[in-house]
Computed example of a mutant assay.
Amino acid sequence: MAHIGTRDSLRILNEKTFGLYLDGGDLGEILLPRREMPEKWTLGEFVDVFLYNDSEDRPVATLKMPKVMPGRFARLKCVAVTGVGAFLDWGLPKDLLVPFREQKVRMEVGKNYIVHVHVDEQTARIIASTRLTRHIDQEPHDFRTGQAVDLMAYAKTDLGYKMIINDTHSGLIFANDVFQPLHPGEMLKGYIADVRPDGKVDLTLHAPGRAKIDDLEGQILAELKARGGFWAIGDHTSAAEINEELGVSKRAFKQATGALFRKQVIRIEERGLRLLEETDWSPSEG
């Protein structure tokens, strides 16, 4: 069955002046405009199309795919503002409407905005909204520590960056885990660092896990030996410096140095790390 906002395979019924008419089931006959018609086609065969509404709210088909499918978040440019709202370029002949009621702040032509795209329950049209929290899932999730996820940056706070996880929930990357500015709408691969008892999610851009920490312990140990047993690095060192030296976050660095300290391999001093004498340690040993 055909639905607005989905990609469907519909049967070609006939050709008329304006293009091909497709079998839309409960939606009736749906026009695939002549400019959209495939070079070769046959009556009765099926064609894959995306369905949306034209300027008169009639279902219409296109062979193109929008820049973002309904149910997802994206960063899109405002190309027009009219008496009904703002319009965004989403890659289709008819621009995407953001009604005034769905604008957290009034949108301006030429600016980019993070929006959620969805089929409006009231009008059955595809619209977008900048009121993101309305569309971020508040239901319990099943994320697990170490899980790889897709992220989109959408807000910056004093603690770090708020991220949309897998187009559903939200989480936070702490500022000391990030070594370059993140921009609104930026897409990243990340990992679940921690799921708190209240369900809130901490994120990281670095693969967590014991093996990674073991490798990092070995790096720190090798560097300490190369430096004669002392390295002026520690809590006082900035996250950017730690990333430059070791290619990891400050949190991962603190995990590794904490593990070395507990193994009585190093001493953590005010000025840095000191390798304890007569140590025969390797990352593979307990």
Results as ranks from 00 to 15, higher is better:
R7P: 03
S9C: 02
S9F: 02
L10S: 06
L10V: 11
I12W: 02
L13H: 10
D23V: 04
G24I: 07
G28Q: 09
E29M: 14
I30F: 09
P33I: 12
P33C: 13
M37H: 04
E39P: 01
K40G: 00
K40C: 03
G44D: 05
L51P: 10
L51I: 15
K64G: 11
M65T: 05
K67I: 02
V68D: 05
M69W: 06
P70N: 13
G71Q: 05
R72N: 15
A74D: 12
V79D: 01
G83S: 10
A86E: 02
F87T: 01
D89L: 08
L92N: 01
P93N: 08
D95I: 00
L96V: 02
L96H: 04
L97G: 00
P99W: 03
Q103Y: 04
Q103D: 04
V105C: 06
G110Y: 12
G110E: 15
G110D: 15
Y113S: 07
E121P: 05
A124S: 14
R125N: 11
D137L: 10
R144Q: 04
A153K: 14
K156S: 07
K156L: 09
K156T: 10
T157D: 06
D158A: 03
L159M: 08
L159R: 14
G160R: 02
I164M: 13
I165L: 12
D167W: 05
T168E: 05
A175V: 02
E186G: 15
R196F: 12
P197V: 12
K200P: 00
V201C: 11
P208T: 02
P208C: 01
D215H: 06
D215Q: 06
D215R: 09
E217F: 03
E223N: 14
G229H: 13
W231A: 14
A232E: 15
H236F: 05
E241A: 14
L246C: 05
G247D: 15
G247R: 15
R251S: 07
F253S: 04
F253T: 06
K254Q: 07
L260Y: 09
Q264I: 02
Q264Y: 06
I266M: 11
R267V: 13
R267P: 00
E270I: 06
R274N: 04
E277C: 00
E277D: 10
T279P: 00
T279W: 00
P283E: 03
